[in-house]
């Protein structure tokens, strides 16, 4: 077993496929192919963060609550998605695939590690950042995937507008990060 591990660590195919990060171009080509597959099979372009809002709604429903009156879930489309449920939602399956796939990739590269929390500041930054990202993505009708990447891929002007402000936000965010959280 030890011999196998040593052999594997030196194997070029193992290194190229699992150990080293794939080149940006490979990633771009694969993302484009899967975007087309997603659009063709599910009828909507790729999105990530809207799915998490649905997960939140299902959790509330699981505890006997209702989101029927919430403005965000008021549309017929949103209600239909919620009625179909967790296991009939393509986006849900895709997000589970993302999480499982990321775990698989990090295990295959033997890079799995549970990280320590560095400081209270880091915790605050993470919670604050997560809340702002989630809230902002819902207000903006999409995140950097649904609104930016899929928007541009659909030849929509909104994707480009989103992109410009994404960069503005990134500049402001990194200034704040360096100033307050380092």
């Amino acid at each position: 077993m030890k011999k196998f591990a040593e052999w594997l660590a030196k194997n070029d195919y193992y290194k190229a496929w699992f150990k080293d990060a794939w080149p940006y171009v490979t990633g771009a080509v694969l993302l484009s192919v899967f975007q087309i597959v997603t659009f063709a099979t599910t009828g909507s372009p790729w999105g990530v963060s809207a799915v998490f809002a649905n997960w939140g709604a299902w959790i509330i429903e699981a505890f006997g609550g209702s989101v029927d009156k919430w403005y965000y879930f008021a549309s017929e489309g949103a209600q239909a998605t919620l009625d179909r449920g967790f296991f009939q939602d393509p986006g849900t399956m895709r997000n589970i695939g993302l999480i499982v796939g990321a775990l698989f990739a990090t295990l295959m590269a033997s890079g799995f590690k549970i990280k320590k929390l560095k400081s209270g500041k880091q915790v605050i930054a993470a919670i604050l950042g997560g809340l702002l990202m989630g809230y902002g993505a819902r207000l903006g009708f999409g995140c950097n995937i649904g609104a930016f990447y899929s928007g541009i891929a659909s030849l929509s002007l909104s994707g480009w507008v989103f992109g410009v402000f994404l960069f503005v936000g990134a500049i402001v965010g990194s200034k704040m990060l360096v100033k307050w959280f380092m």
Partner: peptide, 11 residues
């Protein structure tokens, strides 16, 4: 250790 991008680079 425990720091996410871009903090290691900036540091």
């Amino acid at each position: 250790l425990g720091e996410a991008c871009p903090i290691p680079l900036v540091k």
